[in-house]
Simulated scan of single mutants.
Amino acid sequence: MFGKFITTGIGSMPHTDPGSACEIILEKVDIPFWPQLPGLSFRELMIPQYSEGLPSARIDVDRQRIWVERNGASELNDFYETYTDNTELEISEDYSRGFYQFIEKIRGRKFPVLKGQVTGPLTFTLGLKDDAGVPIYFNEEMREVALMVLKGKVRWQMNRLREFCDRLMIFIDEPILSALGTSSYMGVSDGEVKRLLGEIVESIRNENGISAIHCCGKADWEMVMKTGIDVVNFDAYDYFENFRIYSGVLSDFLERGGYIAWGIVPTGIVIDEVDTDSLKDKFLRQFDALSERVGGRLTPERLILTPACGAGSLREDQAEQVFDTLYLLKQRLLNG
């Protein structure tokens, strides 16, 4: 499906000019993606950005707060009356100027693959709290409604992007996976984690999309790979050893056609000190170490090269350096 060492990004960029962010993306990566711009507006952070249409969600941009009112029965009833399995829920321009600018930049063009993204149901429901400060995950009804909203966001963006590409990939951004199992989340069961992720994966596949998941920390990758996901994206710069632990299930994942998105370019301030040749050496050592465990199933055609995480917390020049480095790394690998 992909060529050797194909590249893409995670989502967030630090730019306040959507056009500039889109131009970098279109110039530097093989699979372009629409940029999330948290520096432009609080609404573009990963939880607010997908909150439109969620019953009883309230947002105070000036105070940078978002919460859910608990006494929202009438809004819930209205939601249920209009929602179907085909419902699309818009991400308006106020919540994603990067998306709309991206559409303008690619209008009239056709790409082999484009990438979109959605905040994962666990990060969304554990990060969004009600007016008593309790994550909505622990309200069974709101957890299910939030899942329905996220599915609607997936359908909406896929139906806007599909005319510009042959295949469409949607990344499920789940940074909170790295915290599951800690004391703060003891009430989160493995079965429910797998169900929520599996339903988002299914919603992407129902739209003929490629499903991917991103976590920039430690995670239970065995559980993730058993959700039916097509692509797993991990932070190889800092967490390769954690990922390598799962080589047994990874072998099965690759055997059934899965892909690894290798987050090798760092997105912290260390990017100022990284050079492409040392990064190439680091990647090749990792590739060889993992190949020893999974055999010939791991090939350059089964890989996607990415930054370790989103670049939204960096300065603009640092983010541009991340994508310059990613671009050059691919060239170095292809040229030996």
Rank of each mutant, 00 (worst) to 15 (best):
S203L: 01
M223R: 15
L45T: 14
P35A: 08
E241G: 02
I172L: 07
C22R: 07
K115W: 04
R143K: 15
A261L: 04
T325N: 04
D281K: 15
V134Y: 10
I172V: 10
T84G: 07
S51M: 09
M158R: 04
Y185V: 06
G120Q: 03
L76K: 15
P266Q: 10
L303M: 12
Y137L: 08
G209V: 08
I6H: 04
A146L: 10
I91L: 05
I200Q: 11
D252L: 11
L196I: 02
W221T: 03
I260G: 04
I264N: 09
K218T: 12
P55F: 06
R65D: 07
V149Q: 09
K105T: 09
S211Q: 05
Q117C: 05
G127I: 10
G187F: 11
V232S: 02
R70S: 13
C216M: 05
Y239P: 01
S291P: 02
F323Y: 15
K153S: 04
Y80R: 14
F253R: 04
T123I: 05
E75G: 00
Y185T: 07
F323M: 11
L37H: 04
A261V: 06
P35V: 06
E104Y: 07
R58Q: 11
Q49C: 03
G312E: 04
P38A: 01
L126I: 09
I31V: 13
L334P: 09
P112I: 00
M1P: 10
I229W: 09
A57T: 13
D131Q: 12
S183A: 13
V145P: 08
D252S: 14
E255K: 15
A236S: 14
S184R: 14
P48N: 08
G127L: 09
N335T: 14
V249G: 00
Y137D: 08
L40K: 13
Y237G: 01
I213N: 06
A212I: 09
E44G: 01
G312P: 03
D131R: 11
M186K: 13
H15P: 03
E93Y: 00
I213M: 03
I106D: 00
R256T: 08
C165S: 13
G72H: 08
L334I: 13
V188I: 07
S41I: 03
E88H: 00
G310N: 03
E88A: 08
R155Y: 07
S96R: 06
V113W: 11
E301C: 02
D130V: 07
M1V: 11
Y237I: 02
R97Q: 14
L114A: 04
D166Q: 13
G209T: 01
G39C: 10
W262N: 06
D166W: 02
N139H: 15
L196W: 04
G9Y: 02
L128G: 07
R162Y: 03
K129D: 02
Y95V: 01
R162E: 05
N159M: 00
L89V: 13
Y50A: 12
S247N: 12
R65A: 10
E241Q: 13
M223A: 11
Q157H: 04
T306I: 07
E163R: 15
